[in-house]
Design a protein around this nucleic acid. Structure first.
Length: 244
DNA sequence: AACAGCTTCAACCGCCCAGTC
DNA sequence: TGACTGGGCGGTTGAAGCTGT
């Protein structure tokens, strides 16, 4: 089967988006929506392929995007869900309102993965050479309504302070672990968790929307995912209770 | 001050899957 | 039923910025 290339390369622009292109794209989507990504750039007069437009919109221009550093709660959530699901970035992103899969992926590879790796090593060789530093680069490029000045200050660690006012659901806040503590799954976790899941099965588990997110995804395909996420969150509650 | 090395992140690539004809 | 299309996802890349020497 001959598959057409995702977009004709000829004459299409690549690379960083200009503010003008951003404005054009946003204006077009606000006016017409994005029912057809492939046709969109032509309709909007953009010399970009549809995929590129989609990516730009999803990862950067969407009005509900939350920019700026990740809160420690968000980081914890990523670590925890990643521990269960692996590199299911879109699924993880669905649990973090305003965050994109791409952003989460980047944070994972640049911060969290190293953090976990270093924590698993013998103490002493852990810390990255440098502290996290700059504000989000591109956020400053786009003076959009949702771009907020990255709240980082020199020397700010990767467990970012949040100026967003956003906080994760209390289930995470109650885990009793500070942001610097690493999440670990031990045997007691699974025994407690599985026991609990047996109890709760069929008895109306809490909404799968543990983070207060409406992922918008049809439940059928995400049932399994939701199950594990919910399971995990409940287990977190168990652990926090046991620490009281 | 200049340079090299490192880090970050926006953007691209290619594959897969679901929907449509 | 199979071909085809469009959208979505995860992995990777490379330019820009930052830090250390």
């Amino acid at each position: 089967m001959v598959r057409a290339p995702c977009c004709e390369k000829m004459g299409l622009k690549r690379g960083p988006w200009t503010a003008e292109e951003d404005m054009t794209l946003v204006a077009h989507i606000e006016q017409h929506g994005h029912s057809n990504w492939r046709a969109l750039p032509k309709q909007a007069g953009l010399l970009r392929c549809g995929k590129s437009c989609r990516l730009r919109w999803i990862n950067y221009l969407r009005p509900d995007i939350k920019r700026g550093n990740f809160t420690s709660d968000e980081e914890e959530a990523i670590i925890q869900v990643h521990a269960m699901l692996g590199n299911r970035w879109s699924t993880i992103a669905a649990r973090l309102p305003g965050r994109t899969d791409n952003e989460i992926k980047n944070v994972w590879h640049t911060h969290l993965k190293k953090r976990l790796e270093s924590s698993s090593k013998p103490s002493g060789q852990a810390a990255p050479k440098r502290k996290a530093k700059k504000p989000a680069v591109a956020a400053s490029a786009l003076e959009g309504p949702t771009s907020e000045p990255a709240s980082s200050s020199p020397g700010q660690s990767l467990s970012t302070s949040s100026a967003t006012g956003y906080s994760m659901a209390s289930s995470l806040e109650n885990t009793g672990s500070s942001s610097s503590e690493e999440f670990q799954i031990d045997d007691s976790f699974w025994s407690e968790t599985l026991a609990m899941s047996a109890d709760s099965s069929g008895s109306g588990m809490e909404s799968s929307d543990t983070f207060g997110v409406d992922s918008g995804a049809p439940s059928s395909s995400n049932d399994e995912m939701d199950f594990w996420v919910t399971l995990f969150m409940q287990a977190s509650d168990i652990q926090s209770l046991s620490q009281i």
